[in-house]
Design a binder for these strands. Structure first.
Lengths: 127, 127
DNA sequence: GTCTATGCAAAGGCTTTGCATTTGA
DNA sequence: TCAAATGCAAAGCCTTTGCATAGAC
């Protein structure tokens, strides 16, 4: 693989993702960034999201509506996804889960984990 | 919504899913069922998978390769997904995770959860 | 100058949907 | 008989890719 060159778009994307905790989709990010960079393309957003994931700068979360969500915070934490409105919220990590080690035993080597709770968020629960 | 009518295809689909623990995708199921029911269509597989999920008979697991995987066993348990070959394996549920209750507090109402570990399976780890 | 990143649009892959027909009760 | 389920194909949606151009070093 080649060298990594600076790109204004990539910097803006990472900055945007680090500034919000609402776990946006690629398109949500695209729409936001388009305001500042009118020529920004969706392809560039996807390419940089994939790159940033590989670099470990961000994380991908499977959304409930067919699109992937992105999280600019990589410290261990869990998520809650509202089945009705699709909102994604952060939860404190559970110690037991984070500590589980099965390296080289039954499974192989665990590198990461994703714990997602599903249900109705406060707002949707009321209705 | 209307009544639920018996369908040979749906029964075969559920039976197939209950008979294996490899968490197949819709297409994998389709290919298997096509042997017994040559006219089986992918659309029918998808429609019945969605229906069985709603009924709580099966569960959907976000795959690592862009396609969803299906699990015919709904008792609480966790999963391990190999980042290399895409294989999905079962893991014992972690008590702490399963017990977490946040109903009506910070979040809303938790109805379900999905805990997925990522890494390299035994086979892929060796290489 | 050279290689990476971008913009744009087309292509891909998985899933959903429309509609005429078949099937279960 | 009549709504539900199916088969088939077309349409949808999100994401990836090809290619010419712009930008970083």
């Amino acid at each position: 693989m080649g060298e990594l060159k600076y790109s204004r778009q990539r910097e803006a994307l990472l900055k945007e993702l680090r500034s919000r905790r609402d776990h946006p989709s690629a398109e949500m990010l695209y729409l936001t960034l388009k305001k500042e960079y009118p020529h920004m393309s969706l392809g560039t957003v996807y390419r940089n999201l994939a790159l940033l994931c590989e670099l470990g700068e961000i994380k991908k979360i499977p959304g409930n509506d067919g699109s992937e969500r992105y999280d600019g915070f990589v410290e261990a934490h869990d998520h809650f996804v509202c089945s009705k409105c699709g909102k994604v919220m952060d939860l404190e990590p559970t110690a037991e889960t984070a500590d589980r080690k099965i390296k080289n035993k039954d499974i192989g080597c665990i590198e990461d984990y994703s714990l997602i709770y599903y249900g109705l968020c406060k707002d949707c629960y009321k209705k």
